[in-house]
Design a protein around this nucleic acid. Structure first.
Length: 426
RNA sequence: GGAGGGGUGGCUGAGCGGUUGAAAGCGGCGGUCUUGAAAACCGUUGACCCUUUACGGGGUCCGUGGGUUCGAAUCCUACCCCCUCCGCCA
């Protein structure tokens, strides 16, 4: 959520920054300012009336205590004032309207971000050469009998995967490997959060109200009992301190969690229909940092490095992309994507998205910190996949395949696979 | 699922429908004392919103929403959450 004060003070700047996303926000902003003006006007009226009521009620109380009765005419007048206040619902109505509009506004892109298109900023890892035509991971998964899309479809329909035998084992190994690195090398606290969360929690990180068509939810007997399946662990992790005021020296908070993620993938019909790339359910290890505002750019760079570390240890070729202002996610002010090379698919695939959300989510979640002069401020939140497990599974198959149809297990994973060096057909 | 109990400030815990934003204790902060520290004593100690250049002024908040009332932390109501006991269960 954007700061309404900033919108009041420098609307032109806010419009300019928002419009870098590729849409003109001038009209929307004017609408917001208009409602803000109306809200403040009616708030003033309501508060004035309330003040009068408070004052005169106190007077009546004083008289009562002295055993005297208040003037009946006065009581009549008060009754009337009270009724008038009750009818003056504009204040609440406008406030609600204002908040509803603000909740739909995306974050401002970082001021330094001025290119609308994505930009590759680095490429790491040497060339990947095969003396044969490399297969796609779904071909490999099928031939090795470690992934069954057929059985998954039988159970759940399209866009699901079922892993078997060494497939399941490899997935588990990847999860544990990633968690261990972040925990032991990068100093994260490991969390196992709920996979279903409340509406407000989804609102806190920015998934709702705008992207409800992307989210799975339980039907529930009523609106209150409806639960939302998390599309990423960012949701529960970032929301862990919602409504809290954290002490300055409790920060930063660094959380890592492995969770399944659930996404409807609405509007992606016909896109990436094969394989592990775009499924309704996938595993991911996610990193979340909750930090002081002035420290977030530094943590953002560090976070990127922490995600990269996994790719380096797995020996995968990848590149770092700085997202353009037109490609930024709703809550993000700046994002780096990590893309890994898929020799079978012959394309780069995003396996991590590393974002600085600034105070955008903190405002929605009401997560604050207190600094030394006792003032409160909103924290900054950052998140990064560390990494998308299913896509890395795919990358391992495609990058470590051999001509005679087996998969070499990356060295870093051997310890997590009971020393197994290869995955053979079974 | 059945039966009860409860949600008050960082924490514990009071609170007749009217000087209660809220007693008291703990904790925190500042000070006195001390070479230093502890103890003791004194003082201080919530968040948010509107308005104001500032000083200040006003308002809201006692789980959440609605209601009663001139006036609600206190009464009514719906919902949410937590706890205890019983039953069932991974």
């Amino acid at each position: 959520m954007l700061d309404i004060n900033r919108i009041r003070k420098e609307p032109e700047k806010v419009i300019e920054l928002l419009s870098r996303r590729g849409r003109d926000f001038a009209v929307k902003l004017e609408e917001i300012r208009e409602i803000d003006r109306k809200w403040r006007e009616s708030l003033l009226k309501a508060e004035e009336l309330r003040r009068e009521i408070n004052e005169e009620s106190k007077e009546i109380g004083r008289l009562k205590r002295e055993g005297r009765e208040a003037d009946p005419g006065k009581l009549e007048e008060m009754k009337e004032k009270s009724a008038r206040l009750k009818e003056l619902q504009d204040e609440k109505k406008f406030k609600k309207e204002l908040d509803d509009l603000l909740l739909l506004l995306p974050n401002l892109p970082d001021e330094g971000l001025d290119h609308p298109e994505d930009r590759v900023i680095r490429e790491e890892g040497g060339p990947v050469e095969f003396g044969f035509e490399p297969r796609t991971h779904w071909e490999l998964g099928d031939m090795l009998k470690i992934i069954s899309f057929k059985r998954a479809a039988l159970l759940s329909g399209s866009r699901f995967a079922l892993l078997e035998a060494e497939g399941a084992e490899l997935e588990r190994a990847l999860i544990n490997f990633m968690l261990d690195i972040h925990k032991e090398k990068h100093g994260y606290r490991e969390i196992m959060p709920p996979y279903m969360v409340k509406y407000e929690v989804m609102e806190g990180t920015g998934q709702l109200p705008k992207f409800s068509e992307e989210m799975y939810s339980t039907t529930g007997d009523d609106e209150n009992s409806r639960m939302y399946l998390i599309p990423t662990a960012e949701v529960p992790l970032a929301n862990m301190h919602r409504g809290e005021i954290l002490e300055k020296n409790d920060l930063p908070k660094k959380y890592v969690a492995y969770t399944p993620c659930f996404r409807k993938e609405a509007g992606s019909y016909g896109k990436d229909t094969s394989g592990l790339i775009r499924n309704h359910q996938f595993n991911k290890v996610e990193l979340v940092n909750i930090v002081l505002p002035e420290e977030s750019p530094g943590f953002h760079e560090r976070l990127l490095g922490e995600s990269e570390e996994i790719l380096k240890q797995l020996g995968l070729k990848y590149r770092v992309v700085e997202l353009g202002t037109g490609e930024l996610g709703f809550s993000s002010s700046k994002t780096y994507d990590l893309e890994v090379w898929m020799p079978g698919e012959k394309m780069w695939r995003e396996v991590s998205s590393c974002s600085n959300c600034g105070d955008f989510q903190a405002r929605r979640m009401n997560t604050r910190f207190r600094n030394e002069d006792k003032k409160t401020g909103f924290v900054h939140t950052l998140n990064s996949s560390g990494l998308a497990v299913g896509r890395i599974f795919a990358a391992v198959l495609e990058n470590y395949q051999t001509e005679e149809l087996s998969i070499r297990v990356p060295e870093a994973l051997c310890g997590y696979m009971k020393g197994k060096k290869t995955i053979e057909r079974n």
